[in-house]
Computed example of a mutant assay.
Amino acid sequence: METPVGHTSEELLNANALPPIVDADTWQRELHALRVREKAATRDLDAIAAQRRRMPMVEMPDYTLDGEEGPVRLAEVFGGKSQLIVYHHMWFPGQEWQCGGCTGFTSQFTRLEFLDNYDARFVIVTQGPIDEALAYKRRVGNTMAWYSTANSTFGADVGVPPGGTFAVNVFLRSGDTVYRTWHTNGRGTEQLSHTFALIDLLPYGRREEWQDSPEGWPQSPKFSGWLDSPDIATLYGPDGPDA
Rank of each mutant, 00 (worst) to 15 (best):
D119L: 03
L12K: 13
F122P: 11
E38Y: 11
E69D: 13
V36N: 07
Q108D: 08
R54V: 00
A156I: 03
D176M: 05
S220T: 11
L198N: 08
N117C: 03
H7G: 07
N142L: 12
E11M: 12
A120Q: 12
D239W: 08
L13T: 08
S193K: 04
T234A: 15
R43K: 14
L34A: 15
Q28V: 01
R53Q: 09
L12P: 06
P19T: 01
P161G: 06
L12G: 12
A133T: 08
A145V: 04
W210N: 08
Y204V: 09
T153H: 11
F109D: 00
T64W: 08
Q28A: 15
P20D: 03
P162M: 02
D23K: 12
Q108P: 13
L34Y: 08
E10R: 13
S82K: 12
T26V: 14
S193R: 11
T64H: 10
G216F: 07
G240N: 11
P56R: 13
E132P: 02
S9T: 12
S107W: 00
V170H: 14
G100L: 02
G188E: 00
P20H: 02
F154T: 10
T184N: 05
E190F: 13
F154L: 05
E76T: 15
S107C: 07
G67R: 02
E11P: 09
S152I: 12
Y136D: 03
A197D: 05
A33S: 14
F171E: 01
G79W: 05
Y204L: 02
Q98V: 03
E190G: 04
D176N: 13
Q83E: 11
S224A: 15
L74Q: 05
E10D: 11
D131T: 14
P238L: 02
A120S: 15
A17W: 04
N14H: 15
G186Y: 08
A135K: 09
D46M: 08
K81N: 11
V125K: 09
Y118C: 02
D157Y: 06
Y87N: 06
G175M: 03
E190R: 09
N185H: 13
R187D: 09
T126I: 02
V160D: 04
G141M: 05
N185P: 00
L235A: 14
R180D: 01
M55H: 14
F78A: 00
V158A: 11
D44H: 15
L74A: 12
G128D: 01
F109N: 01
Y63H: 10
M90S: 11
G225Y: 05
N14P: 00
M60I: 06
R43G: 04
A15V: 05
Y136S: 04
D46I: 00
G141N: 06
L18K: 13
G128W: 00
A243R: 10
D242C: 07
V125I: 15
E59V: 13
G67A: 05
Y63I: 02
